[in-house]
Amino acid sequence: MSGLTKSPWIIHYDASSCNGCDIEVLACLTPLYDVERFGILNTGNPKHADIFVVTGSVNEQNRQVIKNIYDQMPKPNVVIGVGICACSGGVFKECYNVAGGVGQVIPVDVYVPGCSVRPEQIIDGVVKALGILEEKRAAFAAESKKGTDTGANADAKKDGGN
């Protein structure tokens, strides 16, 4: 499991973003920033993902979609709210159809403010998230060691050996 933070897979969902942050998330993957060289991959499948990147704010429509994606992700995982809309609602905070930041629906580990966010900031946020992911992973491993039978212990040892 220690490979998790070496090559985290990311799933991105556009809540009600204006696209500005979405295209910057995509820009991170392209040659100038190229996060794939660090092993960070973008995936469309929540069950493959370790990091959930949400752009834009929550509304009644997408509340359930965000929750579904989050619930399908394997644990441990981290959530990054990218852009000021994902943090608090941003300039659209007062709109009738905007409920606020992503924190209202799922627990968020890293907030990356900005309108729109620069790719450098997003990468910075992901790196921060990796630290949290590592902590969560360690806690998760310790938990499963403590609470379960020898089978789980053997698994944990195997991972440690790797």
Partner: peptide, 27 residues
């Protein structure tokens, strides 16, 4: 899924400030 209702913000922002909302209709 992305409906924000920003057209209604004209009631809260003055016409010069609304430029920055208009700009954020789409990135």
């Amino acid at each position: 899924y992305v409906h924000r209702g920003l057209e209604k913000l004209v009631e809260k922002r003055d016409f010069k400030d609304f430029v920055y909302i208009a700009e954020r209709i789409c990135g």
